[in-house]
Amino acid sequence: MTQKVRSPFFTVSPKAYLYGEELLNLAKLVDKIVKDSSATFFFVAPAIDLPTIVKNTKNLIVTAQTADGFGPGRGMGRTLLESLKYYGVGATFMNHMECPMEFRELVLSVKRAKELGIITIVCADTEKEAEILAHMHPDIILCEPYNLISTGQTSDESYIAKTIDAIKKVDEDILIMEGAGITCGDDVRRLISLGVDGTGISSVLTKNEDRESLLKEIFSGLE
């Protein structure tokens, strides 16, 4: 059964900046901070670290960076959805700019993830791409202009309004995540006020020495 996503939601994604013990310690920190929150929190990690994070957290939906919907069989370097399910991983990103997927693979992967009860977060760049992806009916669509990723600059209100409208006219049930350049609680508050269901943070977190204070301040924007 797919886990229930409560809005607002937030993703913490250290990408490939952290691994091993440092990554696990961050997951534990996020897990501790959010234990009394009514929001939903995703923690995104490389495949090799996912089982350890699942075993050591209670309040997070542990999430893969990408996944393969072709199923068990021939192939190398694949992250099987079946393997994610086996290890208790609750969600996966798909089609991120830094790990793009071919259209056929994306269609198969979203379909198979639904069959396995794994939450799908599919990434889109433009308004038109968001509309096309909505026809796959993923759980969440992350809209972020590729040129703004890791820049500290957030999407403008026109882009947010257009992508929300493009998705909702296809499927009202898809949750909307808008990203790119989130650095503080005010960024989160702004997005929520514009009708977004969730957002997230990645590289800015890994470059900050006081991660606990930064996370608490950013999470305050969800209230």
Rank of each mutant, 00 (worst) to 15 (best):
A27P: 11
D68H: 10
V34E: 02
A130F: 10
I48L: 15
N56M: 06
D31Y: 10
F43G: 01
E102A: 08
T79M: 04
I121S: 06
K128E: 14
K111H: 12
E82P: 09
L29Y: 03
I119Q: 13
L81T: 10
L106S: 09
D125V: 05
G117P: 03
Y87C: 10
T66S: 14
T52L: 15
R112S: 04
E98F: 06
L26V: 13
E98P: 11
T120V: 11
T52H: 10
R112Q: 11
S38I: 02
L18T: 06
L29S: 02
V62W: 01
N95G: 12
G117A: 01
E21C: 00
K55N: 14
M101S: 15
M94L: 15
S109W: 03
S83N: 00
T126P: 09
T52V: 15
Y19F: 03
M94F: 15
G117D: 01
V62G: 00
K55P: 05
A91P: 14
A67L: 00
K128F: 02
L50T: 06
L84A: 00
V34N: 01
L80T: 05
L84E: 08
I48Q: 15
D68R: 03
T66I: 00
D68Q: 02
T92K: 06
L80P: 02
G20I: 00
I118M: 07
F103K: 10
A39P: 03
L24N: 01
G73Y: 06
L24A: 07
E115Q: 15
T92H: 04
P72V: 06
N56F: 05
L84D: 05
D49V: 04
G75W: 04
L80Q: 13
I61P: 05
E115Y: 12
L116V: 00
D36E: 15
K58I: 06
R104S: 14
R78H: 13
K114C: 07
T52E: 13
P14Q: 00
R74P: 04
I121G: 08
L24T: 05
V44F: 12
A91E: 12
G20P: 02
L26P: 13
K32W: 01
L106Q: 13
V30E: 08
T126L: 13
G71H: 04
S109H: 07
Y86Q: 14
K111Y: 14
T92D: 12
M101G: 13
E115R: 14
E102D: 03
D125K: 04
K114T: 08
P72Q: 08
V89Y: 04
P14A: 07
Y86R: 15
T57K: 09
L60C: 11
A67Y: 02
E98W: 10
